[in-house]
Amino acid sequence: MAVLFRIGARGSKLSLAQTEQTRARWAALLGVELSALEIVPIVTTGDTIQDRRLIESGGKGLFTKELDEALLDGRIDVGIHSLKDLPTRLPDGIVLACVPEREDPRDAFVSLKAKSLAELPAGANVGTASLRRQAQVLYARPDLGVVTLRGNVDTRLKKLEAGDADATFLALAGLKRLGLEARAVSLVDPIETPPAACQGALAITARADDARTLEALAKFEDANARIETEAERAFLEALDGSCRTPIGALARVNGAEMRFVGETLTPDGVTRWRRTETVALGGEVIAQARALGATLGGEIRDEAGDSIMMDHG
């Protein structure tokens, strides 16, 4: 069968795994063979950085820049991303065309020494490259240390086994997509400690003027996942959400209601600003979701001011 669509994806093991799974579901919906959807691996700048935080090199866009360029150049028809890696503002000519059904958004606690964060002994080190996870750890356990742990999932698990840290947190969705969910010794309560905005969700981007591709993606859209992630992205945007700001957010649609929890912390975990709200959904639900996220994010931004930004000095 001739190739109908070319799918761009990062070359990492996790990205290729979730792209393969997404391709299979999309092909089934379209009623075509897998070979009609060609995967084009693209190495991004973010994949080559293994020794420091993304903030030190440019932030979230490092995982999307090369795929955006390939889209605009016509080398691929769609890009598949983890939605939490997608900047809140996309380049001109590119749209967030589709949000498929969302995987479990929770964080997983991974350790060979304890069953939960609460069980770690004082002075233990938690490894992470996420400013959010760092701040949430220090808020809950100021007696712990935090060390930088970068790399893909396999790399971080190996570093944990080598004793580089006593515990770490990984997205449960990523572990499940790699068949590694058994490595989670416990799951984090997402209301008490919300995950990264849009965690567990995938983003499929396309050219804004590519009607053929946009039409083919329409039936792949999951309404609840779109509502939830639009609320979370609006919350992020209101807070200037990037790798520079510790932000957790989770919206969950349940029937005609949506529950939202969002928080921002100082990087040292000393102070936390938090909002929770449950709203009835009706009418223009996407606009309603975005308005809720923007309002709650704006309230925190006004309350916290510049204290939530990581000190670059």
Rank of each mutant, 00 (worst) to 15 (best):
T264N: 03
F109P: 03
A234D: 02
A225I: 02
T295V: 03
K219G: 15
S130N: 05
G46I: 00
A287R: 15
A36M: 14
D164E: 15
G200Y: 01
T245Q: 10
R275G: 00
I308L: 02
A201R: 02
L187E: 10
R275E: 00
T278F: 06
T205F: 08
V188Y: 05
V137N: 00
V99Y: 05
I55N: 08
D240A: 12
E20P: 01
A291D: 08
A256Y: 11
I286C: 11
K84T: 08
A129V: 04
Q134N: 09
D73E: 14
M309A: 12
R89Y: 09
A140Q: 15
S82H: 12
G151C: 04
P41W: 04
I286D: 11
A208T: 08
T19C: 06
R177N: 13
K84V: 06
L86Q: 06
L83W: 00
I39V: 14
E277D: 13
E299Q: 08
N254W: 12
A28I: 07
F109N: 02
W273M: 01
V261P: 01
A118S: 14
S116C: 11
I247N: 03
T155A: 15
A167Y: 01
A211C: 10
L138R: 06
K176H: 09
S130A: 07
A208S: 14
L72D: 13
C243N: 10
A122T: 14
R150V: 10
A289P: 07
G255H: 14
D311V: 10
L37M: 11
A223Y: 14
T45L: 12
A140D: 12
L90S: 13
S35N: 13
L72E: 12
M258E: 08
A238W: 02
E66N: 04
R102Y: 05
L292H: 03
E277A: 11
V32W: 07
R290I: 08
A231S: 11
Q199S: 15
L144H: 09
V95M: 04
I286N: 12
L217K: 03
G298S: 05
L187Q: 10
V270S: 15
A129L: 05
D240Q: 13
R52P: 08
V285R: 13
R6W: 03
A201D: 04
F63W: 08
R226E: 13
R89K: 14
L62P: 04
I191F: 13
A197F: 11
A251E: 07
E230N: 12
N125V: 11
L157R: 03
E56K: 13
E66D: 06
T168C: 03
T264H: 02
A196M: 09
S242W: 05
L131C: 03
G8E: 03
E103R: 13
T271R: 15
L96M: 14
D166W: 07
E192M: 09
H81P: 02
L54S: 00
G123F: 08
